[in-house]
Amino acid sequence: MAEQVALSRTQVCGILREELFQGDAFHQSDTHIFIIMGASGDLAKKKIYPTIWWLFRDGLLPENTFIVGYARSRLTVADIRKQSEPFFKATPEEKLKLEDFFARNSYVAGQYDDAASYQRLNSHMNALHLGSQANRLFYLALPPTVYEAVTKNIHESCMSQIGWNRIIVEKPFGRDLQSSDRLSNHISSLFREDQIYRIDHYLGKEMVQNLMVLRFANRIFGPIWNRDNIACVILTFKEPFGTEGRGGYFDEFGIIRDVMQNHLLQMLCLVAMEKPASTNSDDVRDEKVKVLKCISEVQANNVVLGQYVGNPDGEGEATKGYLDDPTVPRGSTTATFAAVVLYVENERWDGVPFILRCGKALNERKAEVRLQFHDVAGDIFHQQCKRNELVIRVQPNEAVYTKMMTKKPGMFFNPEESELDLTYGNRYKNVKLPDAYERLILDVFCGSQMHFVRSDELREAWRIFTPLLHQIELEKPKPIPYIYGSRGPTEADELMKRVGFQYEGTYKWVNP
């Protein structure tokens, strides 16, 4: 592979701008107003304001973009700056750019259920340069409990009458099928589907988006991507930290609602779906819905739930269990780990287990898709061969690698495990991989909904998990304890083995 010439960040961002501006969906010269509902909250200060700053800094926003914060707290732009700027990672050389960014910011205080507050917000936006005809993007960085009041008031008082209007809704989209349907029906009564952007930030990850290209742009994968060759698929999300004093919020939802029903299920769809007619948003989402419709409700015998306990040999936070978090209700049975087996009941995947695993306070930070292939028929190497695996590593250190057998150097035919490896950090030294939120917010500006969740996708996802969630809430089974920093409950490994996964433990990928 030829040595790549190092590029400056300015040059890299210039390439990104060229890609972005050559499309006809990006209205570079139009006025846009980006409204952050819930501007005083954690999500706004840690993710949304920093993301908008990065896009502005790199010249990736339309030229005439204004940012308006809205929340109940009586704040000023200076207050917003004070709480969000520490997350910007701005350099001293960017000081003038930073001043320009905050000059485009404003803030309006108001209630979430008060019509007069929204009329005041609308008047404020109209007073901005060309504000009355601007395109408006409303980001709901809010708890779902206020979605209905907020969307109703936005629709009645704050819509642009000339430009387009788009609304970005953060997960969780309800707690179960019934609450999700209620919320979807409410929002759909106010906005068209092409105006609604239900954001799952995992769909903005580079390697998640790469799944489609790997599958449908490489001839070698087509013939082997089926039940005849693939023994099982494992989708993993692991965090090495616990709730760390923020367990009160987590306890309301648990690990299945927080990660599995959305992030992991979306990745499953991209692995299992048929080739779409095109890369058009609805063509892709149509195929994802077909996959979900082929999955039956989760069966309790295919589920393992766990909850982390303190590690007596650990240090600091590792010595504390979930129930030691003062914000967690006493005696909570909320799971911090889950392993679930699903089956896609169609011709391509009949009988292939899709194993979804996620948890907190585990032994490493990792998100990946792992396809394990069947054993080689007619073994001539005296059971020395391990199964081939194709691994798409989402985070950290984005990579695609194939675990395969090669001859060990020497005189004899002794096979050993090795890999074919594409590590993004080595291959793409001159490429700026956008943060997931950067990519998705740019998608909203461009009107691309491919990486957002459609209402029928959402409904099918909740259909699969709601009976299990209701059973857990009714019966309150005690989750299996696992030690902070471990791989999780051993019962999860036993479940995976029972459905056909072979864990060798003899080879570990190392970032080159």
Rank of each mutant, 00 (worst) to 15 (best):
Ile67Pro: 02
Ala25Phe: 08
Thr151Val: 11
Met212Asn: 01
Asn185Ala: 12
Ala44Val: 04
Leu98Ala: 05
Arg257Glu: 03
Cys158Ala: 12
Glu244Met: 15
Ser132Ala: 15
Ile33Ala: 15
Ile167Pro: 02
Glu85His: 08
Arg81Lys: 05
Ser40Leu: 02
Ile52Phe: 07
Pro172Ala: 02
Arg9Ile: 15
Thr65Cys: 13
Lys238Trp: 01
Asn185Arg: 15
Leu190Asn: 14
Asp181Ser: 09
Ser189Met: 15
Arg182Tyr: 14
Val146Asn: 11
Asp30Phe: 08
Ile154Leu: 13
Tyr70Asp: 01
Ala25Trp: 12
Ser123Trp: 13
Ala78Val: 06
Leu7Asn: 15
Gly174Ala: 04
Asn226His: 07
Arg246Gly: 02
Pro240Met: 09
Leu20Thr: 14
Thr243Ser: 10
Ala127Ser: 12
Phe87Asp: 06
Val12Tyr: 15
Lys82Ser: 12
Gln83Asp: 06
His186Phe: 08
Phe102Cys: 07
Arg81Ser: 06
Asn153Tyr: 10
Asp228Arg: 09
Ser8Thr: 15
Tyr107Cys: 09
Ile154Phe: 04
Ser84Gln: 15
Leu98Tyr: 07
Trp164Pro: 13
Val12Leu: 15
Pro144Cys: 04
Arg74Ala: 11
Ala44Thr: 08
Asn229Asp: 07
Leu214Asn: 03
Asp24Cys: 05
Arg9Tyr: 13
Arg227His: 15
Leu203Glu: 01
Gly163Lys: 09
Arg72Gln: 02
Phe138Tyr: 06
Asn64Asp: 11
Phe237Ile: 15
Ile154His: 00
Asp176Trp: 04
Ala39Ser: 05
Pro50Cys: 13
Arg257Trp: 02
Thr76Trp: 07
Arg136Ala: 08
Ser189Leu: 05
Phe221Ile: 14
Ser123Pro: 03
Ile199Pro: 03
Leu142Arg: 04
Asn153Gln: 06
Leu96Ala: 15
Arg104Phe: 13
Arg9Ser: 13
Gly204Asp: 04
Phe138Ile: 08
Phe56Tyr: 11
Asp113Asn: 06
Arg74Phe: 14
His155Trp: 15
Ser157Phe: 14
Ala90Cys: 04
Asp79Ile: 05
Leu7Glu: 14
Ile15Thr: 06
Phe138Ala: 03
Ala25Arg: 14
Phe66Ala: 05
Ala134Met: 11
Arg175Thr: 07
Ala44Tyr: 01
Ser180Phe: 06
Trp53Asn: 01
Gln133Ile: 13
Arg166Ile: 02
